[in-house]
Design a protein around this nucleic acid. Structure first.
Lengths: 308, 308
DNA sequence: TCAAAAGTGTTATCCTTACACCCATGT
DNA sequence: ACATGGGTGTAAGGATAACACTTTTGA
């Protein structure tokens, strides 16, 4: 085993704090990204369940018990522990959050547990409809906040921060910045959690919407260099459905042909031989994920082919 | 403020656990990556220090108190909470780890606190010397472990895992996989922490070496798409020194000219006008980091230009 | 026949990689 | 003079972004 720790190494008493797990469970059904909620206003949180050796195992068991679906990819997101994040007690609550991906959002067992459209909580993150100009509108309100800063330095910082986060001033929209966007709205006091009412979107309990934004940002980042989309797809799917799922998560449209080339050249899928005409229009070939490449492509490095 | 939580949402009592902060503080001096240790065998760990609102602030205050150096970039790494990770007590210890970057590793205030060459703990991660063939040697020992697997399926999995992690079978070495490599060595029982003695490198207390490997992997990943190296450099530096620092962290040599082009085209630095002849050979121009681009390049997306 | 989605060919451009060479200084 | 690092030009190759068009079905 490990070396015994020299006696003087631990200079601090072991502090005891309240702790919990929080799960952001995501699925995609018919190009709608869905998240598992309690009563539509909270993310499911669970105990450490000390029978399990690892937190990951505890989370898995607990979610699978609730949803009757196996969890695919699971990764730790972030540990939230700021002092004032749980309003009730004065004591610090440590929440270790996890992102979990699963196939399809069918009915769930427990009462109060439901799947919700993820963009219900973060509507400005969905830019698939080119006419949806929500983010720019929000940016306007943010500008006012920037100009209200007491000194020039701070004004400049806020302006450039807004421009980067919301893709203003000839900068491109970056879907990965979901967390920065939420935090900027929060700081500007535009969300209900911070006492505002300008920003749309359903609020959540405590800082759960921040946790959701963290999950979305991480998921979008992960999409680009690891084949995690497949964790969200049924065993067989068309390339159109696959693209639809990626678009749903990325919140933007992709260039069809370049998307296909990308999938093809990375040899991520193989034909099943069957076709389906359920998609409308010309029947599409069905594909399945090539599990073999899973380990390899853990680090491939491919960006998303944007539309237009 | 946030919505009041519906009464039935929290289905679990708030569990109380022992918790601590663990810091991986990294500096680079003369192309040697250094990490702050306690007695050379443990990472510094600290209390939550509840005066501070955020953990980040607590960590910062505490490290700056110990080292008398301002901390540059700080990011949360991972929260370790497996049941058996702290040998002593039977109780679960939750360790929230942070990565912190600072300039130079000068003398530190507290007794027992010292800077150590990071590769002292993970020697196989340093491949700057092309003659250093440590990783392949280790891979040999790992092969034996793979072949000892009870069934064919498991053997195949282990083989491909080793090949990917250690860049075997005509696969390229990937410096980002530092954590996978450590974990593979651990599972194969080759490190002292797991009862072995094959793998070289100084062991650390508990799972601190795993935490260090996590930090190295994260840092290497971050290097590629965010200008964090500059947090480790003195105010003025030559391009050679900058490259040396990146090489030190990445554990491999880079292509000089392409490295320079990369830095140049991203407009990350500007000339100070001064030159230094301290580097030997032709005197080199001194540069400084352009702080303005910090926010922008938060998401630039550039790989490292490899040598050879 | 037309809407709707599937599926293909081709080109310009930029980034990455790689090659090989010259420059200025201290010893 | 020569070792040592600093500093540059340029071309091949591949991946990405962007162009528009054909095919096959159901209604």
């Amino acid at each position: 085993m490990a070396l015994p720790p020299p006696a003087d190494l631990r200079r601090h008493p072991s502090e005891r704090v309240a702790a919990e797990l929080i799960a952001v469970i995501v699925a995609v059904t018919d190009s709608v990204p869905r998240v598992l909620t309690l009563g539509g206003a909270a993310l499911p949180s669970g105990p450490f369940a000390s029978e399990h050796r690892s937190l990951q195992a505890a989370l898995r068991a607990w979610v699978e018990h609730q949803t009757h679906h196996p969890l695919g990819h699971v990764e730790q997101l972030y540990t939230f522990a700021d002092r004032d994040r749980a309003a009730e007690a004065g004591e610090r609550v440590v929440s270790i959050s996890y992102l979990g991906l699963t196939r399809e959002a069918r009915a769930v067992g427990q009462a109060g547990v439901s799947w919700q459209d993820l963009y219900r909580y973060l509507p400005w993150e969905d830019r698939r409809d080119p006419d949806a100009t929500l983010a720019p509108v929000l940016a306007q309100a943010l500008q006012a906040w920037a100009e209200a800063a007491p000194d020039a330095m701070l004004r400049w910082e806020r302006r450039s921060r807004i421009a980067i986060a919301f893709g203003l001033e000839r900068r491109a929209w970056n879907e990965d910045l979901a967390l920065q966007r939420y935090e900027t709205l929060w700081e500007a006091g535009l969300v209900p959690e911070a006492g505002g009412s300008t920003a749309p979107g359903e609020p959540m309990v405590h800082d759960h919407r921040r946790i959701l934004a963290t999950a979305l940002a991480r998921l979008r980042g992960t999409l680009k260099y690891r084949p995690v989309v497949f964790e969200l797809m049924p065993p067989n799917f068309t390339l159109g459905q696959l693209q639809g799922a990626v678009e749903a998560l990325a919140g933007r449209r992709l260039h069809k042909q370049n998307f296909r080339r990308l999938i093809e050249q990375q040899e991520l899928v193989e034909e099943t031989g069957a076709v389906t005409s359920e998609t409308g229009g010309r029947p599409a070939r069905l594909f399945r994920f090539r599990r073999e490449v899973m380990a390899e492509r853990a680090v491939s490095g491919s960006k998303l082919p944007l539309a237009r």
